[in-house]
Design a protein around this nucleic acid. Sequence first.
DNA 1: GACCTCTGCTGATCCAGATCAGCCCGCACC
DNA 2: GGTGCGGGCTGATCTGGATCAGCAGAGGTC
Lengths: 250, 250
Amino acid sequence: MTQRNVAIAIQDSPFARKLAAFVRLSQSDLSVMSEIYQRRRRFSVGVDMIHQGQSGQSAFVLASGWACSYKILPGGTRQIVDFQIPGDFLGLRSVLFRTADHNVEPITPVQASEVTQHDLLDAFARTPRLATAVLWAASRDEAMVVEHLVDLGRRSAAERMAHFMLEMGARLRLVGIGDRTGYACPLSQYLLADALGLSAVHVNRVLRELRESGLLTFQKGRVVFDDHDALVELAGFDRAYLDHDGPLLI
Amino acid sequence: MTQRNVAIAIQDSPFARKLAAFVRLSQSDLSVMSEIYQRRRRFSVGVDMIHQGQSGQSAFVLASGWACSYKILPGGTRQIVDFQIPGDFLGLRSVLFRTADHNVEPITPVQASEVTQHDLLDAFARTPRLATAVLWAASRDEAMVVEHLVDLGRRSAAERMAHFMLEMGARLRLVGIGDRTGYACPLSQYLLADALGLSAVHVNRVLRELRESGLLTFQKGRVVFDDHDALVELAGFDRAYLDHDGPLLI
DNA sequence: GACCTCTGCTGATCCAGATCAGCCCGCACC
DNA sequence: GGTGCGGGCTGATCTGGATCAGCAGAGGTC
């Protein structure tokens, strides 16, 4: 494969597409990325990709499948911080902090490219634009976590659920999965509960309410927006934090 | 002032001290920083430093005083995402995303150094190590937001309060304010309520409970840890996410 | 075919924390 | 010296969501 071909291949990956929304990536940026992107690993459901408290962990770029990052509390309960979908960069903090402050676990079978601490620091030294791009991607993740914080702090259960479903819909559409009408969603009600800070029982009831009021249906692994506008209204959803207007770094 | 003197001055700032925990900063990194650090602006209480939805905003390095970053929901309630103390870098996302997705407001009179979009991108291009350091600082902020998310999702009101007070204590000690016994805290119970996702009434009751059970006293602008170990136990507080073990980038 | 586990679903009851209403104090301001 | 008003503080009441308990179907596995 020639250099040029490699660069074309990587350009089409969801990860590169996401970064390109922020910086115009040079040929050398792309080849550094594609080098990393080649090395694929597979993970099966339930096997931690990153383990809280352990050091020397790698980061990953998700190529296919869904994962979730979460924290376990003394007491056994857990809080899911976010779900990762194809194109997402995960475990950055576990590399920068040497020891991981959270877990990451696949929800479906996952394919991911491993990025070691050495890869990362090396890539930053060689291609500063890439470092800035990763900083941007990390900031976008932080914006999502902040939005989840608002969910838990100030939105009711139904608003939270609506907001979450809309956010996942928007994120998936950005990487070419799903459309305005809905998307395939491999999450169980238990996972939703741990993410939204609710009990599984209550998640079930909220989903029923949303279904019966004709807003949203989540059944058999598929989310359908029955009334997109009403959902946006209910959740106070403003997708500004997800997409930005063209590259900042030319 | 000679180059060397400037470098020495900036090295003692809380901001540089924080970054130095992660990367060994070179002479040129320091001089880029000190250039920015000279330009001080003052803000008084209640005047937004960063305004949600507006574009072309700057970031700031806090030199003195406390600020808070928050989001307003349609409906008027707000959620405080975090408080900023001296040495903190704030508004990074408002620069990287061109338009701000949150507000930042001083809680006490504030002195801060302005960092424009141009400053930031320029500094990154000139000193990649600094870019990595800022990435690290941003990740540390994200780790704090994640911990707040866990607070709201899975901790009871008393646990939340304990966790929050311990976290602020640890952060303040890192920049040389306060000690193991307690610290000066300019927050009102209303601010605490907006940060912890509680009502002000309930904040008051929780504070009384903690006081009466001999764990923590917050009165007249001062937080006193009456039983630090019991607080850590109650909150499940693990300060690993705040301090890391020596520079990663040599 | 018996058994287990996972997930979705439901009713009954309980409780942490919200909401409503109001008092008290210090202090800025005219 | 009245008059706001921003805090802190408190009692009474209400409620969203947790908890407890249990059923049903769909796989998986021996």
